[in-house]
Amino acid sequence: MRGTERFSSLHPVVTVCYFVAVVGVSVLLMHPLVLGVSFAGALSYALYLNGWANMRKTLPGLLVLMLVAALFNPIFNHRGYTTLGYLGDNPITLEAIYYGLASAAMIGSVLLWFVSYNKVMTSDRFLCVFGNVIPALSLVFSMVLRFVPRYFAQAKRVAAAQRGIGRDVTSGSWYARARNGSAVLSVLLTWALENSVDTSDSMLARGYGLPGRTAYTDFRWRDRDLMAALGFGGAVLVVAVAMIVGALRVTYYPGFVVSSWSVATWLALGVWTALCLAPVVVGVVEEAKWRSLLSNP
């Protein structure tokens, strides 16, 4: 992603704040338009980042999950006064269906935002954000990321080596397999303990444990980050104010009522749309710029 996509090249702190903002608003507000916009933004960004080919595997599962959420509410929640029919003795109400759809949109958009978050927030970006807060934690996190894959790779090597001298984990009786499996674990454990001595030597040799450790990150705070942060902050502020003054209030029970369609509502919705679509729009505009640069000699 680095260098090709504008939004994820922002400072990790800005990126994290952005995701907290969009997810937070999506969870707090049940306004159907807010959720619809959030879902559209999350879906388009996830598709933009991962491509259709990769998302094709993720999307069906997500849709099923959303469908379950949408159906769950009307089946078990019988509030609301517009009864559409009965399932056994229980009334199915229009309001409950509306609420189910809204929660499905909320769940869907939050999950899709997390799909993008995962793609954008690589481990080093995560560290940059949390390393500032607790330096020791950032190192532990980095070491875990180093050692977990390493131990898995070694376990594979051990299993192959054990097979080479006639102990196979994948065949033989249940007892023999369990025995050989525990042998692999035992070898791995010994190996890990013995070799961690080297690691600790290497850390000591490079001054680990001296007081006043700093946490280095490779990311720099640029003007662009400040502008983006101010922009995002302003947008969230507008939505929050609209929320507080009741411009985005929606009630589902007992009747579905959208309280207000004032200027403030439309302003907030406009700002919210801009916020949700910002990553994709910025990315697409950037790409267009590249193309025009390439086509104009």
């Binding site: 390493r150 690691t199 990150t217």
Partner: peptide
């Protein structure tokens, strides 16, 4: 392998200086 502590090349390069409390 055993000497490398962190998961990223850049972080490994910075490790010693981090321990020494060097400014960013």
């Amino acid at each position: 392998d055993n000497q490398i502590v962190t998961d990223k090349v850049w972080h490994e390069l910075a490790f010693g200086l981090e321990s020494l409390g060097t400014p960013r």
